[in-house]
Design a protein around this nucleic acid. Structure first.
Lengths: 145, 145
DNA sequence: GTACGTGCAAAGGTTTTGCATGGCG
DNA sequence: CGCCATGCAAAACCTTTGCACGTAC
């Protein structure tokens, strides 16, 4: 049972909102904070088990939902039959091919000014954004159907 | 069995790509073209049955996948436990509350210039885009947790 | 007439739920 | 010590697959 290391910033967001800092939650948070990949519930379960061996599937789902509510994670759908979770912080920018499913991540982003305007107009407090562009990659343009 | 009415533009995209115009596909297309909502596979099945009573669940899934491949639909994930399909044409712009799940649609969009740049840089042919901003609505800002 | 597409039903996965037990605060 | 959170197992759901039949072209 590897002791999970999670930033104080994240743990405080949990306790500030009235949630207990259990070992199951810390294990999930450690995975979320370490990983740079697009996470599925199953993958989180596997990895978090190295911190908390007895961890159950249901708890992972409950924790992922909780972290989404707190604005730490966000769910996305990339075209195959399941959910992925990504860190909500900052933003994500995807270019997705409708043919082969390839996902390219890029950095460009002109969302800053839109965030400002949307916050004023709708009264939302905006934590994160996701920009997805869909089309066909160079390979799939040549093989229609 | 209501005869489905589908625009020639859509039917031609199917046949141009080498797909047959079956009554099942026309029924699904009619629903997609008529509806303004965020569509789930189950809802599409129910509605499309009014055009093609014997329609099966599997065919709806296969057709939705096909329409996604052709760039007519796009899947999104809005935070509850399932997929939604929306029309890919143009773009979609959502403001989603992490607390209560409310989804606001807005018109502003500065994606045009980004599309241009991404096409040049990655060689993609871009059909559509999705901009999602996540945060908390005015109500949920006051009730943390 | 032929290959593609369909419907059915079963299989395969994923997500949710109920409940007794455990542990944070 | 009380209540929240967990783990387990089962249930509920959603999605995919295999196969024989139907139908667009």
């Amino acid at each position: 049972m590897n002791k999970p290391s999670v930033s104080a910033q994240l743990t405080e967001r949990l306790s500030a909102a009235g949630y207990r800092l259990t070992s199951a939650r810390l294990a999930v948070l450690a995975v979320v904070e370490t990983s740079h990949a697009h996470l599925t519930p199953g993958l989180v379960l596997d990895e978090a088990k190295s911190h908390a061996p007895g961890l159950g599937r249901a708890t992972v789902y409950r924790t992922l939902e909780l972290l989404t509510e707190l604005g730490i994670l966000r769910p996305i759908y990339l075209g195959d039959g399941g959910v992925y979770f990504i860190r909500a912080e900052g933003g994500h920018h995807h270019l997705v091919c409708n043919g082969c499913g390839q996902v390219v991540e890029f950095d460009e982003c002109m969302a800053g000014e839109m965030v400002q305007e949307l916050q004023e107009r709708f009264g939302y407090q905006i934590d994160s954004h996701l920009l997805e562009f869909h089309g066909r990659c160079t390979v799939c343009q040549e093989s229609p159907g």
